[in-house]
Design a protein around this nucleic acid. Sequence first.
DNA 1: AGGGCCTCCTGAGAGC
DNA 2: TGCTCTCAGGAGGCCC
Length: 271
Amino acid sequence: MPELPEVEVTRQGVSPYLIDQEVTGLTVRNASLRWPVPELAQQIVGQTIRSVHRRAKYLLIDTDAGTTIVHLGMSGSLRIVTALTPVEKHDHIDLALASGKILRFNDPRRFGAWLWYELPIDAHPLLTKLGPEPLTDAFTPDHLFGALKNKKKAIKLCLMDNHIVVGVGNIYANEALFAAGIHPETEAGKVDLERLVILVSEVKQILANAIKQGGTTLKDFTNADGKPGYFAQKLHVYGRGGQICTQCGNLLSEIKLGQRATVFCGLCQTR
DNA sequence: AGGGCCTCCTGAGAGC
DNA sequence: TGCTCTCAGGAGGCCC
């Protein structure tokens, strides 16, 4: 399940094969993704790819005529293949390039998306309301403090709210709160600035570290095993409910918060 | 307006 | 062995 680091590593992995390439074809084998793949997506054929950007977990393939927006959803992945590469189950979309390479989109659960937008991409409804990128200077303790003011929701839910900060999915929200020593159920508006300084720093560190590890683990997007997955990064709490806290030896608690698995140490993490 | 819940989907794993 | 059940989860959309 791609989180922001996986998406960024994917972007870095496929970019060199896409940039300055003319698109020679778009094959949609299954258009039933999160939203139906629009006919207009064909507009990319004949265009030259200028750049591949990322905003939150959206990959943006830019051409002069418009932008293809790709979201990997829960289970999506992109690979670089050739016309000889056998089509596998759930290989829903091929973007063929003048080089002979193909950008192939695979997504078993079809929570992903493949869209087309002709206007300046910043104006797309999916992107206009997004909060700052966590790894930029726009994501500061002050920003977070302001965004959480008077919020009664749990801090973990706010951390995963794309209007507040993008790209922090369930795994890294769990990990960052553990690293910051903050109980995930803490009322967001009551976390003081001092603790938010630590939280912001941990979010940045954890995401940056995952990208760094992903970059080395996942260097080759032309291999079948080049599928983004969980990185080797050591997870302290996620998926470890009932097991022993790596810091204090206490048993980790597991609860549901916003229908998401939430794991924490009742001793190390306080409200 | 803010908060909470539902929904899409398939594969994995558990239980019988 | 093989079936059935449950669960996981990003994020838009809807309802209150």
